[in-house]
Simulated scan of single mutants.
Amino acid sequence: MRTGIIVLIVLALLVMVGCGKYNGMVQEDETVKNKWNTVQSAYQRRADLIPNLVSTVKGAANFETTTLTKVMEARASATQIKVDANDLTPEKVQQYQAAQGQLSQALGRLLAVSEAYPDLKANQNFRDLQVQLEGTENRINVARNDFNDAVASYNKTIRTFPNNIVAGVTGFKQKQGFTADAAAQEAPKVQF
């Protein structure tokens, strides 16, 4: 009888500890989802600024239409890819990141080409939009870093003992953060 009571007490303690560990993992998972939503919001802000930028640039005489077309195509592609915060698989995060990277490259080309148009550079709307885009790019970087911090904390939580046992039983899996683009691995070549 006494042994049965001790076994029940030990089981009750294990269940309570397991519930606490599970609840902690749920909180970490929700933090990751929240940070992912912030990342998407920052990228959406950038996507919302692009039509205004393109309209302003179109006003410049003889501006290269292929550059504008590529920007709008990259924007369309990037905004079509949606990743649900409940399904952050490495493949989906990489696909999202690749589409956003293509948009970043297209915007970079647009801004580089705009340097050849003094009337455009003097346009107050264009300068304002450039400042807004720069601020948005900074927000995107902060949001990605915050997301990566949340993913690292979550992954650490579900991989440590005894959390890994609870995570395995309850279906918590590792999540993928943002990584540097392959092109960012090489330093740009500067020629004078």
Rank of each mutant, 00 (worst) to 15 (best):
F126R: 01
F126D: 09
R127P: 05
R127K: 13
R127F: 13
D128H: 04
D128L: 02
D128N: 05
D128Y: 03
L129V: 09
L129K: 06
L129T: 11
L129M: 12
Q130S: 05
V131S: 13
V131E: 15
Q132E: 15
Q132D: 15
L133F: 01
L133K: 08
L133G: 00
L133V: 15
L133Q: 07
E134F: 00
E134Y: 04
E134W: 06
G135Q: 15
G135E: 11
G135W: 08
T136A: 04
T136D: 07
T136H: 04
E137P: 02
E137S: 00
E137Q: 05
N138S: 06
N138H: 09
N138E: 14
N138T: 02
R139L: 15
R139S: 10
R139Q: 13
R139A: 14
I140L: 11
I140G: 06
N141A: 11
N141F: 12
N141Q: 14
N141V: 09
V142D: 10
V142C: 10
V142P: 12
R144A: 12
R144Q: 14
R144F: 05
R144V: 04
N145Y: 07
D146I: 08
D146G: 10
D146T: 14
F147G: 02
F147H: 01
N148Q: 05
N148T: 07
N148F: 00
N148I: 02
N148W: 03
D149Q: 15
D149L: 13
D149E: 15
D149H: 12
D149W: 01
A150V: 07
A150W: 00
A150H: 05
V151W: 00
V151G: 08
V151D: 05
A152M: 07
A152N: 12
A152R: 06
A152Q: 13
S153T: 08
S153W: 10
S153V: 01
Y154F: 09
N155V: 06
K156E: 10
K156W: 12
T157C: 07
I158H: 04
I158L: 11
I158C: 06
I158Y: 03
R159W: 14
R159S: 14
R159A: 14
T160P: 01
F161E: 10
F161V: 02
F161T: 01
P162T: 00
N163Q: 09
N163A: 13
N163D: 11
N164D: 14
N164C: 02
N164H: 00
I165F: 09
I165N: 11
V166D: 03
A167F: 01
A167G: 11
G168V: 04
G168I: 00
V169G: 07
V169N: 02
T170G: 04
T170C: 08
T170Q: 03
T170D: 06
G171K: 12
G171N: 05
